[in-house]
Amino acid sequence: MNDLELHQLINRVPYAQTLGIQVGGENDCFLLPTKKSNIGNPTLPALHGGAIAGFMELSAMMYVLRHSNSEKFPKVVDFAVDYVRAGKYVATHSRCKLVYLGRRMINVSISAWQEDEAAPIAMARAQFLVKE
């Protein structure tokens, strides 16, 4: 799937619209611009951990679609996230890496950062099941 198709797909997925995810400038990167509805702590303010996890999970899903010929959504079997820094209310980026590409299972690692890619706010991995 090319960037244009991916962009059109994001426009069709309501949850992607709710979060506000965008295809990032760089390959395999995605962007989550600031959006009030992703705030979990209004006093700091900080992003909701669930919004960060959702963004990373959705990034991995889009990444799998970008690298496959299928337009069917891959099924998430499990998803794990380590939070290391608070998610400030600023633009958040994600970068996906293919760890394993099998006939049925795909493993993707995802990092999320804000100002500095070397200082991620969260690291995650997702296992997808794909049907041939």
Partner: peptide, 9 residues
């Protein structure tokens, strides 16, 4: 619904 929403819940 997307898994991300269930993760947040």
């Amino acid at each position: 619904i997307h898994g991300g929403a269930i993760t947040a819940l």
